[in-house]
Design a binder for these strands. Sequence first.
DNA 1: ATCATTAGTCAACTATAGTTTACTTATACA
DNA 2: TGTATAAGTAAACTATAGTTGACTAATGAT
Lengths: 107, 107
Amino acid sequence: MMNDTPVKKTLGRVVKSTEMPELSKPFSPMQLAKAITAKRTGMKLTLVDVSQALAISKPTLIKIEKGDVTVQLHNVLKVMEYLGLSFSLVSDDIAHSNEEVSDEQWY
Amino acid sequence: MMNDTPVKKTLGRVVKSTEMPELSKPFSPMQLAKAITAKRTGMKLTLVDVSQALAISKPTLIKIEKGDVTVQLHNVLKVMEYLGLSFSLVSDDIAHSNEEVSDEQWY
DNA sequence: ATCATTAGTCAACTATAGTTTACTTATACA
DNA sequence: TGTATAAGTAAACTATAGTTGACTAATGAT
């Protein structure tokens, strides 16, 4: 199954651009990792590009893109912001569903 | 403005339950921190409760609940999972908006 | 087949996150 | 107001994430 698409690079070079994972699926460190790699390659940036721009070492960046969670939240957030990725918080509220729908009258 | 609501604790004790932040607003470390505290207090768990359950020290937990980002992603995720919180990935796609809306016919 | 360029690994070192223990402050209840 | 419980802080120590520099492995172009 062909999962990668070649994309033109700045200097006229072609690089494998890894595919963006399904953002709708439940969050996992690997999903995050893949999204980061996909974004970076899609933006035609090398590990060194990002590494230099954010003052993060290449090995650390690689850890992040491998889904290693033993990294500082700080570093992950820096990378995400730089690449235009963000989180959204999801709470397992176990449905307040019906009772106490609101203080407001809605009908 | 009254921002906290007292809630019955397991041993018949009343504790300030901090309010859940707006999950719809843009993500920030502080939003995450507040959501975690809100969840924990809402579940009537003490810092020590969580700290022991997850084998994370109290100081580290406090760092997390203060929005300090110099903590391991690993620890943040453990706490979130335990409390029933999760992330959802958001990508600033800079609108593919119009062109190539979909492969499918939708009208 | 060779040459750039990028990705990924490794080892030694440095920086700092995380732990433990103890203490202080705040909160709720009697 | 005193007491129990929880939150938060501080310091010394330990564990480990992160860095640097050099090296190897892929990948794509010519």
